[in-house]
Design a binder for these strands. Structure first.
Lengths: 208, 208
DNA sequence: TAGTTTACATACATTCATGGATGTATAGTG
DNA sequence: CACTATACATCCATGAATGTATGTAAACTA
């Protein structure tokens, strides 16, 4: 059912997809949908949460598990690469994000979705800021711009890459471009970075 | 008419706004709309082009007028600041971009709009790449990442900032944040940059 | 001034999505 | 075995948006 909705939402947009079509695609009738979900908005939310809840839980748990001993920038980079990789390899994640970014209208009735989006973003920016400050202190450097500005820029860079890539996945390779531009940005903040990263196999870096 | 559509599209989303509502808001009837536009999609396109055509023409003309003598990075920065400033000061520009990014579903019937968006983006990325290469040669530095990657990242940064700001204009100040993160990114590419830019009045920089 | 085009308004027919009401088969429970 | 809740399917009434066809006042033109 949710799979059918995903496919149709991506192909036709949310508002132009009827519950009838979803039911038909799922091999059922509208009655079944109305049994499981209050209305279309509830179905949409369920579809989103099915993908986003586990995706949000991942990095958060990792961050907590790692504790304050690890390298905060490496954690962020790892989380980003994980997200970008998922975006390119997991069709479901890609579909849902495509729907969320280009196939739905964020109006008052979708207010709950937009609110979730906003709080998730703020949490992400907050994590970035904390990590950047921590890393700056550790590396004995002073951030050339305020921490919140630096974090906001980093988030804009990553989310901008994702959105642009979804608009045309053939325009560039998401993961390597993400790696490299991420490192460019961090280098601009004053962190010593390996700007060759993102090209080919990374095993040598780990070995080195 | 187009003003009415702008307001309603932003408030309710494109698909949930009826031609009846637009007509009523404009103090007319649906007949008038069907006289001027083939259908809702045509009206939407007209609304977009009214804002985007002059906005695209600006930087292009400036770039051509400036010629190869000027500082290419300064041109890009100027164009960016101009766009960001317009976004925060011109309510119409802000509305239309809000609609285009969060209040419309990019499906097959909006294919022409998406195509325009894509070609505009590619042109922008192309300009960025050319400017970065030119500036790198002039400053006798070697870009630490391929030119197209650097350009793609720069574009993702700017467009990401705009999209995130539209999602919540109170989250951060668009223009100063844009300035500073822009310079952070360029510094990461190896260009010598004044990372204090974006805070308060810029007159002193010009004077210095 | 008669004719024609413009710029709408009005009226109508069609299509269609929604929500709710009702029917029904299946599985579980005492 | 009777009863009940689940998990649907089917049917219907309603409202609403669209597109088109037709009416019409004003302006322009010959």
């Amino acid at each position: 059912m949710l799979d059918a909705a995903e496919l149709l939402f991506q192909a036709q947009g949310v508002s132009q997809t009827t519950l009838q079509q979803i039911a038909q695609q799922a091999g059922a009738t509208r009655g079944a949908i109305y049994w499981h979900f209050k209305d279309k908005a509830a179905l949409f939310n369920a579809m989103m949460e099915r993908v986003i809840l586990p995706l949000e839980a991942g990095p958060r748990a990792a961050a907590v598990a790692a504790g304050p001993n690890d390298d905060p920038l490496a954690e962020i980079e790892e989380g980003m690469v994980h997200a970008l990789t998922l975006m390119t390899t997991d069709p479901q994640v890609r579909r849902v994000f495509d729907v969320a970014t280009h196939k739905v209208e964020y109006t008052h009735d979708m207010a709950s979705v937009q609110q979730r989006h906003l709080t998730a973003r703020n949490a992400c920016v907050g994590d970035f800021e904390k990590a950047l400050r921590l890393a700056a202190r550790r590396d004995h450097i002073k951030l050339p711009v305020p921490g919140d500005v630096a974090a906001q820029g980093l988030h804009a860079l990553i989310s901008g890459l994702i959105q642009n890539w979804l608009l045309d996945p053939t325009a560039f390779d998401l993961v390597p471009t993400g790696r490299r531009t991420f490192n460019v940005y961090l280098a601009g903040l004053g962190f010593p970075r390996n700007l060759a990263a993102g090209i080919g196999n990374e095993a040598e870096e780990v070995a080195a």
